[in-house]
Design a protein around this nucleic acid. Sequence first.
RNA 1: GGGCACGUAGCUCAGUCCGGAAAGAGCGUCGGACUUCUAAUCCGACGGUCGUGGGUUCAAAUCCCAUCGUGCCCGCCA
Length: 595
Amino acid sequence: MFLSLRAEVEDALEGALSELDFPTDDLGIEEPPDDVDSVLASSVAFRLASEAGAPPPQVAGQLANEIDADELTYVAEVQTQGPYLNFLPSGAYLAETLETATDDAYGALPDRDTSVVVEHTSANPTGPVHVGRARNPIIGDAVANLLDYAGYDVDRHYYVNDAGRQMAVFTWAYETFDEDDLEDGPERDRVEYDLVRYYRKGNAFLENGPDEEVAEAEAEIESIMQGLEEGDDETYERVSEVVDQVLSGMRECLERLPAVFDEFVKETRFMRNGDTEELVGRLKDLDEAVYEEDAWQLDLDEHGIDKNLVFLRSDGTSLYATRDLAHHEWKFDNYDRAVTVLGEDHKLQARQLRTALELLGNDTKPLEQVLYSYVNLPEGKMSTRRGTGVDLDDLLDEAIDRARQEVEDRLDDRIRDDDLDDEDVERIAHQVGIGAVRYDVVSKQPTKAITFEWDRALDFEAQSAPYVQYVHARCCGILEEAGFEPDAIAAGEINVASDLDADLLGTEAEQGLLETIGRFPAVVDEAADDLEPHQIATFTREFADRFNAFYRECPVLADGVDPELREARLALVAASKYTVANALSILGVAAPRSM
RNA sequence: GGGCACGUAGCUCAGUCCGGAAAGAGCGUCGGACUUCUAAUCCGACGGUCGUGGGUUCAAAUCCCAUCGUGCCCGCCA
């Protein structure tokens, strides 16, 4: 609805400008500050002042006179305030917003008939997922949800690095060492915690072991790499045994968030189907291809990248980057757009990838990257190989424990008489605990550096998930109290009369809430365009503020409330419920029925 | 050394792409509000040379240049 309003305002303003012979290239449309009544405004008058030979406020007046609000559907009135033009929403705008928003798909944009693959996480299958990487699945999942909501046809991919040197090392270590060789037991009863011990042991051995034995190990590792390159089935099986086990454990961890994938794409796929070999041939034919120190590389100096892209080692094996080129051509063949969520430390590689893809004749516009900066510990970087870092499992466990404690502490002074049972407590603990972790990550611009601190990551106060979740629970509480079935609320099947009178919602709190609800689809649209899910988080906070003001000032079910007003307010609560539930679902944060 | 990102209140962050309404939240501090749909809430107070210096503009946190600080990258690793 907001989108229609904006279109209408743009049209009207453009018409007025051309009528007065002013240029129409910049309409100066903006959203006014909170203390202004309008929903949209324009600052064009500033720019026209010199051309018009009149001060801005006078120009604004001329424009306002030129626009006949009676001919507009969603605009009730055009006012000037100094140099600004303010467009006030009409009753029809608010009524249509209310009607549109009382729908469980509110905020979802029309199908764009465009497919997009969102690749995220893609952590090497070397061990437990740690917090240093946790931004990736959380942001990635939200980006995918966001695009889905914005009308794209989304596939979520995890690209599995199962052909790199690390996996060869892991496979060798797994086959070479026994349980007896390992110092400690697994930190957790799950397969990747078990196997990572071999990986760490292997790496330590390669670093500090006796030279002769290390040389033998290196020879074995080299033969595994060669086997993979040649597409040897037995080697593939050996490596797969490690990869598949570790990956299954990591997957379980990610599902706790939950971050789920449509497909785990293994890079060996592009070696075994011949794509990599074919691609290497094409790379060698490029003008930029050079053969230096027995290795094939791309000299990208001319393209502003001073680091060569090595695509074939001197031993003839391909590199991650080589296979990733084949991987991306495959994406281009199968999707209209390709979005990758990756750490800022991969930025240079991303530039090399894009440039090489261009040189190979691909149009790389469909390829977009969302970059985030790593989460570090106060004492430094997290590393799977060295075993430094906080496991995501531990963070989630702690978050749930603290949330459970919170719920139990509050149990005694609950006003609401809804008898939370043990199951509810556990449900709330999970929803709030995990929600808080996700919200904390997804609500910030990904490019900002984060240093991990337990208390900060698990702060339930602040501008956190529980604050927004609580609004949802309040909506549900009111709806339940009004007689709607909890199950229907959970399923989003709240049926309120659609012919009710939005004019009844006349207070500032009600109008402000309705206007905020009306902006939601536009926020989804813009956030999706920018690939910035944190815009949705910012919106949920503004929305929660508005809702709380309404909650404070506008009783819905109290005895003195007129039945018609009660219905209208109930519809507003239902619309609020859908808005906040859907916004939270984009963020991947649970919307609790009660808390 | 070079490239990229970040720098807004004591702390954590919106706002920056696309310049416009005397800089907005939360936490913390201080003071208030539960016989009323859930107080994980709300109201009020205190708190800011938007890193610094220049420039462009009627107008700069926002654009340009320089500079300082922090992070990341500059492997035949991923």
